[in-house]
Amino acid sequence: MMKCTEATQLLSEKMDRPLSNKEKLNLGIHTAMCPACRQFGKHMLSLREISQQYVKQNDASEKG
């Protein structure tokens, strides 16, 4: 099975390029069995949301 080091790298790359079918399959098998990497994948999405929020600067910085 794929290692967590490889799975995390793919979870990051997934944010930047479409994964191949083979990569998707292997990553899917890994994350199905590995809650830590599943969580890591969610965090990659959160980082993106946070970054977009940061640029928008919404009302966040006003609330002091």
Binding site: C4, H43, N58, D59, A60, S61
Partner: peptide, 26 residues
């Protein structure tokens, strides 16, 4: 072997809605 160290495993994060409002977070 390339697996997460036990104490380093990513934890569940709170929903961003709550946290993103915080000045401290930024």
């Amino acid at each position: 072997k390339g697996h997460w160290q036990k104490e380093q495993r990513p934890q569940k994060w709170d929903e961003p809605d709550h946290d993103l409002e915080s000045h401290h977070f930024w």
